[in-house]
Design a protein around this nucleic acid. Structure first.
Lengths: 369, 369
DNA sequence: CCTAACGCTGACATCGTTGTCAATGGGGCA
DNA sequence: TGCCCCATTGACAACGATGTCAGCGTTAGG
């Protein structure tokens, strides 16, 4: 805050003794100060400023003090990218994170965990939303790469991520979250989708249900396929004809899920229990059941937790994922790779947990229809 | 994908005719390709590659084709930061966004709106969480500035944002969201906190309540002060002694709010109605009322919407903000400033809306205590 | 037929920083 | 006293891109 007492009001002499009037040293200047400005004001060379800013050794205490004062008085902020251009390690201390949508609670929790891990290492995070659009995915990745992020944490919507192969060959760490990669090998952190879906299904069956419906996401999303498989496999194990079970796919938001549920109960032999394979779908189902006033006699288990699910009536039974752990583990993988871990690509499976809150424990009841 | 048919397998001749073996042109190379690699492979100068990559005019169609093929075969991605160093406009096409926490639904909606506006302009967004920590705020801003973001959209926790003055003088657009700036003048986009809080309070009073409690955020947050003032002013207008009304502040998450609510009902003359001034506080209050089994006879209006608030019993009456509009307007201000808008700093007030769902319409009932 | 103009192209300096290296000077030790 | 060593410091090139400018060949106009 205090301007330098000595050098402030007039052009300053450089170390070489010549007066350089082309460098305004006024702290109120409009231009963004560079290391040269700081060096001139402090009366040292730019390299010395660089040493001080980066805490390198072999600078005298007096010089450090002069440089720091000059930097403060100019409100100097080093240009990380210019430095990065020359720096040996080539790190931008930046990460790219791609999630379904930054306003989805699952994504928010992942994001938060990634941010916390990144903050501890002075790494900033670019976040983008995918909207399950493969083009948007590639555009986002390209935007990240042009900005030379040190690593990527990606939720993908594309059929195949082979387009990342060259980048992987260059050594950029890529960790897939929520969905497994296809066409390319790299670390991934996912929930145990098949087991979780089976667990949900088994839970409903154990409460006497035989007529279960599956409501899920787009079929071309691997994660959705796995959950569907977990559901169908479990039906099979219980000796329930899977051909009869209504399987509705392609639901991607509350509204489509709500309409699909209404349609389900408008048809013959509606289910007595529903397994919804995604948080927004679960919410849509709840809305529909309320509308039909069937929320107290149709059982429901959702995959992925729902905000305030414990406060609804009935409470929403879910197979909860652990998005915070997913984000944390993904960030840890990225940083481990950056720190030189060359071990084979790992698939980290984060267990799910059945949370009984009421909706999943309702007994079957024949429709009064 | 297809390697160049002609130039691929061997070192390539430069335009000057000399063979440059120091530049590996193999698409499978480990090194990240630069414009020089592309230029060498295409047999043109770097400036021509630059022209093609940036879509500048005056390049022959044949040259464009050659360069594009070379760039694709090397999986070349331009280095935005290197270009930015030299580019005249000095724009990184990057924005810094600071919100309360990226996993808060309000922040998620703001973030999403900012991202959508940014995407349309090819701008990437850094997102960070504030956690109402002034040090974290300054660290995040500094991290953004070192990365030379083109603009900032900030939620602040500090007493005073004078530290931003030099940056503002340099012309960096800064838009404050959710909270007004102090000690510095710049654009802001906020909800009408005072009016919204008054509206909520009036609503409770109009349903017969005279004993209202205020549960809110830290008092040193301006937004919280405004909401508190709206509450107290409205009590005053209704002729209710404000001295009697329990005002609990310093609540920052569900748990502290829950405990504060429990304490409130453990004391003499508990309120018949509660105004909770923030979404997490509202949730904590709901949990406490459930625990006490008082959720059907203590009225509640929250400031800021709560996920699934319409599905709870009773539905949660709230004064809803419009986080999407806040984010969109903030981004629009930033881009307008970047496009040269020099008009005086603007304070954009986004109206709030009372959403009646049941909890706010409960009549007063004397405690059975 | 000469010249001006234009389209196309590449050499070079430059952006703000860091790596390399050499120069300086003071202190310790023989 | 003399020499070496080390701490301190700055000049300079380089990172990957773009702005400037000059040079080339071709075409249009007089």
């Amino acid at each position: 805050m205090t301007p330098l007492s000595d050098a402030e009001p007039t052009p300053v002499e450089t170390a070489a003794g010549r007066t350089d009037e082309s460098l305004p040293v006024d702290a109120r200047s409009r231009a963004r100060p560079t290391m040269r400005h700081v060096a001139t004001l402090a009366g040292v060379g730019v390299k010395t400023v660089s040493r001080v800013i980066n805490g390198e050794p072999n600078v005298s205490a007096a010089t450090i003090e002069r440089v720091m004062r000059a930097a403060r008085s100019l409100d100097y902020e080093p240009d990380l990218h210019a430095g990065n251009l020359r720096r040996a390690d080539g790190r931008t201390r930046t990460l790219g994170l791609l999630v379904g949508s930054v306003d989805n609670p699952f994504a928010g929790a992942v994001h938060r965990a990634v941010e916390d891990a990144a903050l501890a290492r002075g790494v900033a995070v670019f976040a983008s939303s995918l909207d399950d659009d493969p083009e948007r995915e590639q555009a986002a990745v390209s935007a990240f790469l042009r900005r030379r992020v040190d690593g990527l944490i990606l939720t993908t919507a594309s059929e195949d991520q082979a387009y990342l192969a060259p980048e992987l060959r260059r050594g950029t760490p890529v960790v897939f979250v929520d969905r497994q990669p296809a066409g390319v090998t790299s670390d991934s952190v996912v929930s145990d989708n098949t087991a979780g879906a089976a667990l949900a299904t088994r839970h409903l069956i154990s409460h006497g249900h035989r007529r279960l419906a599956y409501l899920g996401d787009r079929h071309d999303i691997r994660t959705a396929q796995e959950r569907r498989r977990g559901f169908l496999d479990e039906l099979g194990r219980a000796g329930i004809a899977t051909g009869d079970a209504p399987v509705v796919e392609g639901l991607h938001d509350e509204e489509t899920a709500r309409l699909a549920t209404l349609a389900l109960f408008d048809a013959d032999e509606p289910p007595t229990a529903i397994f919804s394979a995604q948080n927004l779908v679960t919410i849509g189902v709840i809305r529909a059941l309320r509308e039909l006033d069937r929320h107290l006699d149709v059982a429901l288990v959702g995959f992925d937790d729902v905000p305030l699910g414990d406060l609804l009536v009935p409470g929403v039974t879910v197979v909860a994922q652990d998005p915070h752990a997913i984000g944390r583990l993904a960030a840890e993988r990225v940083f481990a790779r950056l720190d030189g871990d060359e071990s084979p690509a790992e698939r980290i499976i984060v267990p799910t947990r059945l949370v009984e809150r009421g909706s999943g424990e309702l007994p079957p009841r024949v429709s009064a229809r």
